[in-house]
Amino acid sequence: MNSPLESAALFYIGPVAITQAIVMTWVIMAVLVIGAYLLTRRLSLHPSKRQVALELLVDTLDTQIRETTGAAPAPYRGFIGTLFVFILVANWSSLIPGVEPPTAKLETDAALAALVFFSVIWFGVRGAGVGGYLRSFAMPNPVMIPLNMLESVTRVFSMFVRLFGNVMSGVFVIGIVASLAGLLVPIPLMALDLLTGLVQAYIFAVLAMVFIAATVEEGAHGPADPDPETSLQKKDS
């Protein structure tokens, strides 16, 4: 059995090994961009069903962002929405036979988590200035600075491992069951995998939003709830 932690290179471009996950990412990117372009070609004041569906999607995202952060959703919409859509499509691409989702590979999830890490810095500096962003480490008091710095790394590492573990375990379990029991047996597991993929995409996006919002708020106004998990609960309850 192949290790789920490794990936074989299909070919090399210079020093860069192009794995199946990277190719799959390109495919997903192409599908998403072309699909979005086709879907948004004719937006008008009198919406078709297609446009209503798109607007419902965007409106739901805006509502979620507003409920999570209390801020205007416009600056975060592109980043959070794209994260959610990409992770969702990537997770669900496991339904296609022979396709291993890119999020089941370490590099993709690490890249997404790293993007979240840097976006926290970016949005924090953009929203509260460099001083405000640095001050957000001293919340709720300066004693917490080392812990906050450590937390800013570990929380994205946690996101990385969470996403990777969930998707990879789903694919891995399905592979094992398929190899042991036969063709149709893993179908319930695949259904569960759909749910897991949706929930993980949602969690990833919401956590990214919460981290960004917490940093911006702390930098701008002072202490907010630094714990992402309680923030999430508070939002949802």
């Binding site: 860069v16 090994a17 990277i22 390109w26 592109g78 929405g81 994260l83 590099e107 997404l112 790293a114």
Partner: peptide
């Protein structure tokens, strides 16, 4: 290298979708 490439891919996707 794969990590960097995927991050680049994701950034490009975010930009394009935006």
């Amino acid at each position: 290298w794969g990590l960097g490439l995927q991050a680049l891919n994701a950034v490009i996707l975010i930009w394009l979708l935006s």
